[in-house]
Design a protein around this nucleic acid. Structure first.
Lengths: 158, 158
DNA sequence: AAGACACGTAACCTATCTTGTTACAGATAG
DNA sequence: CTATCTGTAACAAGATAGGTTACGTGTCTT
């Protein structure tokens, strides 16, 4: 449990929701992702607050998409999960007294900021529909139903 | 203790070694960085193996630079500390069965690879001497000796 | 109205990673 | 021979993402 995988997971589930489910419960989704229903609710809560999905309580409730995948970018989801830190390296203290340390952190920070800007720009220009289209290119035979099988397996084994 | 700060710390100490110490013990350096002598040895071991610093054991021993700061890039140090992971986000599993998940991870991986390439390119083209020069521009009055004072304070308070 | 179903959320536990700490072995100068 | 260093192993501490349990609340069916 090290790298934050929430972005990857949310993209994954949104594509499945678009293709295989009109409405899915947290339990169903958790089986799909190989995780726990509470983790799903916790993470999806952000997407709901930003209007990308809707949740319905009670009998027959669950989660559904609130807009088309071509209307949601990776950046949208990144922000919806709370903009977790992107980098695993950084300075040791926030506001160092030492001026050498300040110069080091400034230079390092410049490089990191550039890389972050590039990454967020890519996130901004890629929609989830683009990823789904990539999937279609990988699987031209239309064997989409394989996913149901795979996820059913995971469900059965847990 | 989250973000890996070894790169920042090593850059910091190398500049000080170039400017204020011909040879420094792990103890001296640890005071400078606000950490522990064992941590210093552990981290500097990588730089020694790559030939950027030398260490001498025994009485009167310690660490010294093995080449000029203009001969060491940020990339060199990044590699010398073991190329720690740069990003704090990523996929949840390494080789997912689900083809949708594969497409998601591929797209996300592309963006991360681009950002990583940019970051490492910056690391490659910046020498530690460049950072030291930035420091000189920040402190044109030549009050370099302030650092000795600051680090002496830290030493005294610990 | 009762009960099943599903989300909402707090609280706590676990795994993992970086860093800190202790302890001790080996090398070197005086 | 002893003081002073580095080299390293082993373990503790602190932080964080994710997993788990428990319980509250809303909603549909009967």
């Amino acid at each position: 449990m090290r790298r934050d995988s929430r972005l990857s997971r949310m993209l994954h589930v949104l594509i499945h929701m678009d293709r295989h489910y009109k409405r899915a419960t947290s339990e169903t989704i958790s089986k799909m992702l190989g995780t726990n229903a509470v983790v799903v609710r916790r993470t999806m809560a952000g997407l709901r607050d930003f209007g990308y999905v809707r949740s319905e309580q009670g009998h027959g409730g669950g989660w559904e998409l609130a807009r088309g995948l071509d209307q949601i970018t990776l950046l949208d989801i990144y922000e919806a999960i709370g903009k977790p830190p992107l980098f695993a390296i950084g300075p040791s203290v926030d506001q160092p007294e030492c001026l050498v340390e300040q110069a080091v952190d400034a230079k390092l920070g410049d490089a990191l900021k550039e890389a972050e800007a590039l990454l967020l720009e890519r996130f901004r220009t890629v929609t989830i529909a683009d990823i789904a289209a990539d999937f279609d290119r990988r699987m031209p035979e239309g064997r989409c139903n394989i996913h149901g099988d795979i996820h059913a397996e995971q469900s059965a084994s847990s």
